[in-house]
Each structure stands twice: as C-alpha cells, then as structure tokens.
Nucleic acid binder design. Sequence first.
DNA 1: AGAAATATTATGTACGTACATATTATCTTT
DNA 2: AAAGATAATATGTACGTACATAATATTTCT
Lengths: 233, 233
Amino acid sequence: MNSLEQQSWQSVHDEVLRRIHTREWKPGDLIPKEVELAEQLGCARATVNRALRELASEGFLDRRRKAGTRVAAHPVRRAKLDIPVIRLEIEGRGQKYAYGLLFSERRTPPPEICANLGVTAESDMLHITSLHLADGKPFMFEDRWVSIAATPTILDADLEKISANEWLVLHAPYTRGDIYFSAVNASAAEAKVLRTDPGTSLFLMERTTWENQTGITSARLLFAPGYRKHSAI
Amino acid sequence: MNSLEQQSWQSVHDEVLRRIHTREWKPGDLIPKEVELAEQLGCARATVNRALRELASEGFLDRRRKAGTRVAAHPVRRAKLDIPVIRLEIEGRGQKYAYGLLFSERRTPPPEICANLGVTAESDMLHITSLHLADGKPFMFEDRWVSIAATPTILDADLEKISANEWLVLHAPYTRGDIYFSAVNASAAEAKVLRTDPGTSLFLMERTTWENQTGITSARLLFAPGYRKHSAI
DNA sequence: AGAAATATTATGTACGTACATATTATCTTT
DNA sequence: AAAGATAATATGTACGTACATAATATTTCT
C-alpha cells in the first residue's frame, strides 16, 4: 500500500487488518501512530482514528493514550449475538409463528427470582408460562416473572394474544440486562410441554432486565431440541 | 435538555437513549434529523452523527439515508459475547489452568468436516482431541480438525505444551468465522472424558474459521456440566 | 537517590465545511 | 396512468484544526 489516493476508513480498516492477518504486525506489536499511518495511507488522521477505533472495539487492537496502539496479544473474539423477539426469529426462518399462554398467576416470587431481580419476597408479581411454536411444533417454552410494581400496565395486556416477551419489548423501557446461556436436561414437565423425552438436552437462555436499579422481569427460555444459536465473527 | 452548553457524543447518546426509554420517542417513531438535534443539544452535527451511529449499531435505532432515523420497531438486542482463549477464560475465573493432549492423528477428514470447511475428502488434515482443565477438573473437551495445507507450520508446534486453540490464535491468520451454540446429551465417550454421566446435558460451541475462502480449522468444544456463558446487554 | 512538579506525547473528541450516496419526492414523457 | 428522468434531502464520510486527557518521560527540588 503506497502513499497514493487511499481514502475511506473502511479501506484503512481492511489494510490494517490485512497487516495483522499476514503477521506483518504480530500480536503485541506496537503499530505506527495515527499521524504516521495517515501519511502512509494518504488520508486524514480522523479517518485513521475511526478505522483503528473500530478495530479496537472488534478486539483486534489495544489502544492507550500516549502509550500508542498495539495488536491485541490475545485476540478476544467478540461475537455479536442478535437476540430478536421470538416471533421474528421464527418468521425469519420462514416458519409460521404461533403462541399459546399456558398459565398465569399473580403472586409473590420464589427465592431465586428475588435473588435475580433484587426484589423482596413480598413483591407483587405476575408469573406467566407460555409456549412459542414454529410451524405448529413447540419451539420455545417461556417461564417468566414480571414485576407489577415496575410495570403495572402489563395487567391490562391481553397475554392470550401477544406474548409477554413481545409486550415487554414494546412497552417496558429498560436500561440493562443480563443473559446466560447454558444446557440443561429436560425435566418431566418440560419434556411434556416441548413434546420430547425427559432428560433430553435443551438450550437454555436466562434473561433478567432492569430499568436503572429496578428489576423488571426475569425469564427462563427453554428451546426445543436441535436449537442452535448462530453468530459470525 | 435545553439548548445550553451540551457537548460530547456520549451525552447525546445518553439523552437520546433516555428519550427512547421514557417513551418520549416510541418504537417506530421518526426522530428529529441530525441537524435539528444538533441545534437542540447545542453541538455539531458530527457529534450527533457519532451518537446516533453508535445507537444504531447497538440496535436501538434504524437509520436510512434520506428516510431519516427511527426508533427500532423491534429492538434487536445485540449481546456481545467475548470469546477468549480458553486458558484466559479459566484464569479469569481465578482457577488454575491445565491442558492435556488426548489424541493426534494426520488423516483425511470425515464428510461433516469437509462440509464445514469446504474442503475435499482427500485433504491432508490434522485431527486433535484435547482436554482443558480448571483446578484439575475437566472443563472443556476439544475435538479439532486443522487444514495442513492452510497452516503447514502447525506440524512443528508442540501440541503437548500449547493447546491447538491457543497456537492457532497466535499463528494462524483468519478473516472470518462461524460459531454455533447448542446443547447436546453427552455420549458415553464424552461423558467419560468429562467425568460425568452419559446423557448429561452439555453446552456445545462449534467454531469454524476461514482465511478468505480457505478453511483453516473446525472445532467442537464441549463444556463440562454447569457451564454458563454470560453476556450483558 | 527519591519524590514531586513539569513537559511531552499519542490518543480522544469536537467543530465546520465539503462532498458522496442512497432514497424519496416530483416532474416529465409516453 | 405508468414509466422514466430529475430534483430534493437526510445520512455517510472525509478533512484540517483545535483542544482535552491520560500516560509517560524529564526535570527540579529536597
């Protein structure tokens, strides 16, 4: 890459990535400073800055003021997982989405939910279990607790028609959340709902969301056998 | 937020996010154009642009030229998963890392590996299985195929001492990869290696990486029972 | 020599201008 | 009215300058 017409932060991004991939710049190496790169590649420092910033956020570079920019010594791969509303995930596969409310009650939460959301055992909560289907077959079993204090309007929602999952996305603001992915053996009850055998290995997604310090909802999403979550890196 | 001294893309980012969270701007809504926002918030358009670009990449906004910027109708949560080298993941938990090579052979690949990597059945490949331990207990079982054509120097690596996982990160350039997460029941052999019972539900990560169009390696990473992958959103 | 103050430096960010590009909206032609 | 050409417009990006900030290097002081 000589000092000709080069432009665009994308091309700088690609060129730097090429040098990393070809080991011209090896893990741990200090790379030229922004001003030098800008000269080499014939563009403004702002352009180099944008490219390097992007590469750092992708985990390829480590940057520190004054210390300069280094190729990440232990490239941490940052996989981006898109977690859409279940309906869209199913429709995105070209399958027909259906949903059924299994059970709904208003009561105080069990200890593990209190711990997840940081609420007291006397909290007024809505407990819902439901089943999401793809082409008529069980796809995901949802077991959710919603704080009525934090989201009173959910009592007005018709959860026979719209899933709590989707209602919350549209009506409950939230600022942060946690997700855990794991694998569990199906219990007898879970196996029955998902029409599989007890003990079958199931993909589990546990999600908890807060608005500021207030716990909104905690959900256990259990996927039917064969489910795979994909990500490109 | 009045038209006073406001600066910094972070504060613009936070202010826009606040308006989304408080439903001042609801899903699907068209928000003011960059120039207007810049005026409102008293900063340059470039600053607003950076904030909105960030919010779009986080999945809160949809932006299109000429059409303007809208609050995402179906907020797709973008969970960022950090996938470090196994050794660092274990050490990051404060546990002692150990590694053992179980098996290594040089041979032609089975059909599923050919399909994954897009190589022919006559390819010269290295097949390695190994076990990663945390505090002496089985943590992850790795079953990996590496293309010798694409990465000939791996034959010189001492895979008794450094795991293929780590060696590849440090020595094999790659441009793109796929990851699949799923749950599987342990086979008899897998259960034995991971010191658990056959049928136990295990978290599986399948990774395939390419350099441009050349398949480099395909790995099946099977985690011991209880493993959970976390992400904040 | 060791600590504290000061200078230096690479990245981080803001601003204003200019132009590119993708879409949408409008006008013209058939 | 449908199709095609043209204008309008919001975002996308590049550039150069200016200053902020964090970390390091150097100098000064005790």
